[in-house]
Computed example of a mutant assay.
Amino acid sequence: MNDIDALRDAWDEPAAPSSGARTEARAALMDRTAGRTPARPAARAVRFPRLGARIAAVGALATAAVVGVTVLQSAGGVDENGRPTSAVPGIPAAPVADASELLERAAKSAEARPFTPPRPDQWIYTEYRVRRGDTPNGPLSDDPADTRTNRSWKRADGTVLAYMENGKLEKSPMMPGSSPPQDYASLAKLPTDPDALLKWASTEPEGVTMGTPTAYGKLSAILRDNVLPPKVEAAVFRAIKKIPDVTLVQDKVDTAGRQAIALGRITEGYLHEEILFDPKTYDYLGERAVAIKDNTTEGEDMTRSVRKGDVLRLTVRVKAGIVDEAGQRL
């Protein structure tokens, strides 16, 4: 059964409209035909059908990653004349035209967001939903039950990492000198000029010659794993604008069931690395990787074969913010 069938089965068949409802609808139609504005009817209480146990199956389907759903790119709602309005002041409500425009809207949204920097003794909390595959590094499972939630806490001074393991909060020292940096103090000092930030992201750190991500990958990792000062986050988006071959993608829905706008860049010749954004607020939502053609990769310990259209990674950030202690949630 697909998600549409599940939703259909969860609701009772609607009752036929009453004669009063038909009369009102006919009168409204005649008013609009004559160019008159119909009177607004009084508000009525709406009674929803009882779903019972069937809603559980629908809720489980809502956690699945769905491909092929058209993205609604108009932000906000509509005004009294039916024109779309933006959810973020100063950002157009019209559909996004390309990756550059999407990134600029994300930058402006970040700049408009209220923000209080964390104290050194506070923690950066992040919560993700991650879809697993049937095999390591292989295509993701189609079973919603294979979606797991990951929660982690990083002390703002960069000294301690905390995470849940077997239902218990565990702590470990954070590795100093990581690339990209993971402590808030280092991230807050990053350049807010896009050109300077891109130059930084394109430079190998001293002593590191292998495994360093590209500028696109490094900037994506900064977005994924941290809570950034608004000016730094805006600079990250504008630095990505300057990376060649970053293009807009549509028709994506993340594992939380929310619609997303995506942009991405081809890596390794067959993989499209994508960043997901909220279509209304342009907040960062997560990332995914999709095979754009068949590929077989030979490794020392395994061979991986993927087909065009396979989703190989899907991570959706559900919550991110500042808390007072490890284990505390938003």
Results as ranks from 00 to 15, higher is better:
residue 203 T to Q: 15
residue 199 K to Q: 14
residue 258 R to F: 02
residue 264 G to L: 10
residue 241 K to L: 00
residue 169 L to Q: 02
residue 249 V to S: 05
residue 187 L to W: 08
residue 187 L to K: 00
residue 161 L to V: 03
residue 219 L to F: 11
residue 210 M to V: 08
residue 208 V to P: 01
residue 263 L to I: 03
residue 194 P to A: 04
residue 243 I to V: 14
residue 235 A to W: 05
residue 163 Y to K: 07
residue 176 P to A: 01
residue 196 A to Y: 07
residue 203 T to I: 12
residue 250 Q to K: 15
residue 171 K to Y: 06
residue 168 K to N: 12
residue 173 P to I: 08
residue 181 P to T: 04
residue 214 T to S: 15
residue 208 V to I: 15
residue 224 R to L: 13
residue 182 Q to A: 05
residue 177 G to F: 09
residue 257 G to H: 11
residue 176 P to H: 01
residue 218 K to I: 01
residue 220 S to F: 01
residue 225 D to H: 09
residue 175 M to G: 03
residue 243 I to W: 12
residue 225 D to M: 09
residue 198 L to D: 10
residue 234 A to C: 15
residue 234 A to F: 14
residue 237 F to P: 02
residue 209 T to C: 00
residue 157 D to K: 05
residue 223 L to N: 11
residue 171 K to L: 04
residue 183 D to N: 15
residue 166 N to W: 00
residue 195 D to L: 06
residue 218 K to M: 06
residue 205 P to E: 07
residue 219 L to G: 04
residue 247 T to K: 13
residue 242 K to F: 06
residue 249 V to G: 14
residue 182 Q to W: 00
residue 170 E to L: 04
residue 204 E to A: 12
residue 172 S to T: 12
residue 235 A to G: 07
residue 202 S to H: 07
residue 183 D to A: 09
residue 240 I to M: 13
residue 222 I to Q: 09
residue 164 M to C: 04
residue 196 A to T: 13
residue 165 E to R: 09
residue 252 K to F: 04
residue 189 K to F: 01
residue 256 A to R: 14
residue 216 Y to E: 04
residue 173 P to M: 04
residue 231 K to Y: 02
residue 189 K to A: 15
residue 198 L to W: 08
residue 171 K to H: 03
residue 211 G to E: 14
residue 182 Q to H: 00
residue 219 L to Q: 01
residue 224 R to S: 11
residue 219 L to M: 05
residue 198 L to S: 11
residue 197 L to C: 08
residue 232 V to D: 10
residue 199 K to G: 00
residue 192 T to E: 12
residue 177 G to L: 02
residue 227 V to F: 07
residue 230 P to Y: 12
residue 189 K to V: 00
residue 247 T to M: 11
residue 213 P to C: 03
residue 178 S to V: 10
residue 254 D to L: 06
residue 168 K to Q: 15
residue 240 I to G: 06
residue 208 V to G: 06
residue 165 E to W: 05
residue 170 E to W: 03
residue 248 L to C: 10
residue 155 R to L: 08
residue 167 G to W: 08
residue 220 S to A: 12
residue 218 K to R: 15
residue 240 I to R: 09
residue 251 D to H: 13
residue 187 L to C: 01
residue 178 S to E: 09
residue 205 P to V: 00
residue 219 L to D: 08
residue 160 V to Q: 13
residue 195 D to V: 15
residue 236 V to H: 05
residue 223 L to T: 12
residue 242 K to C: 07
residue 224 R to W: 07
residue 246 V to P: 01
residue 157 D to G: 02
residue 212 T to L: 08
residue 259 Q to C: 01
residue 178 S to N: 05
residue 154 K to P: 00
residue 157 D to Q: 14
residue 237 F to S: 04
residue 160 V to A: 04
residue 243 I to N: 11
residue 184 Y to R: 03
residue 192 T to R: 10
residue 258 R to I: 02
residue 214 T to G: 11
residue 220 S to K: 07
residue 243 I to E: 07
residue 227 V to A: 14
residue 177 G to I: 12
residue 263 L to Q: 05
residue 256 A to Q: 12
residue 196 A to G: 12
residue 174 M to C: 00
residue 264 G to H: 13
residue 180 P to N: 06
residue 222 I to V: 13
residue 216 Y to H: 10
residue 184 Y to W: 13
residue 249 V to L: 09
residue 178 S to T: 11
residue 211 G to V: 15
residue 261 I to H: 03
residue 233 E to A: 11
residue 173 P to H: 02
residue 174 M to E: 04
residue 189 K to M: 09
residue 163 Y to C: 01
residue 222 I to Y: 04
